[in-house]
Design a protein around this nucleic acid. Structure first.
Lengths: 114, 114
DNA sequence: TGTTATGTTGACTGTATTGTGCAACCAATC
DNA sequence: GATTGGTTGCACAATACAGTCAACATAACA
């Protein structure tokens, strides 16, 4: 699922027209149409601040939208800035190694719950 | 300690003038002055590449400077965007749990080397 | 005293990003 | 056939970002 598709989906769920939603988030409706259809030049997508407003108006998960828009969600950003040493290493791992660590992290969280 | 203060501290330790350091990292010395004094309009600080060059010329820890400048290093950013699922979980861990995983990650890398 | 070394500040600039706004157009639907 | 809703191209505008440049202040010092 890509960003634009998800926005469209959320918008439809709320029965907003492009013009409705555009007015709510404060941009022109043609811009929103282009976002939903990924019709923006190179890859110049919505700004973070627009995504934030979209999340509010659509009652959506901001982090999910940020991820789809290929922006770093704020909670992750904060953690990376606090521990760049750790995340530099984690970021250098292969997907497989990352998967292993994530499984282990999940076991850790499991134990915490018990 | 803020970013600019730290840069000034490091620069003084090396007995560089603003003009010295600016020449080494390839920007105008007035710009460095503003960075050290946090006198840039809103808060638009040094670019990541400038911070990188500063770390080299000042023999400083790049991660430390990135943290102070509140930047997510580009290689980490790319990896987070490629694996948001994994990093969302990793970002939710405590420092201790993160340390454990990093130790494990290092062992993995060790094995690869052998 | 003048000049040299260093740092500070305001105004400005080039480029990229993030949009705007119109016009023309299509598809439903009432 | 008029209204509602959406698509797309094109030209342009506003703002942010990453700096530069000229002018000035300040202290050391010959």
């Amino acid at each position: 699922m890509k960003f634009g598709e998800r926005i469209r989906e959320l918008r439809r769920e709320k029965h907003f027209t492009l013009r409705d939603l555009a007015a709510r988030v404060g941009v022109g409706f043609t811009y929103l149409s282009k976002i939903e259809n990924h019709k923006l030049n190179d890859g110049h997508g919505a700004s973070e601040s627009l995504i934030h407003r979209l999340a509010i108006e659509l009652d959506a998960d901001e982090d999910e939208l940020m991820t789809l828009a290929e922006k770093v969600p704020e909670p992750i950003r904060r953690r990376v800035i606090a521990r760049p040493d750790a995340f530099r290493i984690l970021a250098s791992l292969t997907d497989d190694d990352l998967n292993d660590l994530v499984r282990r992290a999940n076991r850790i969280n499991q134990q915490r719950v018990r």
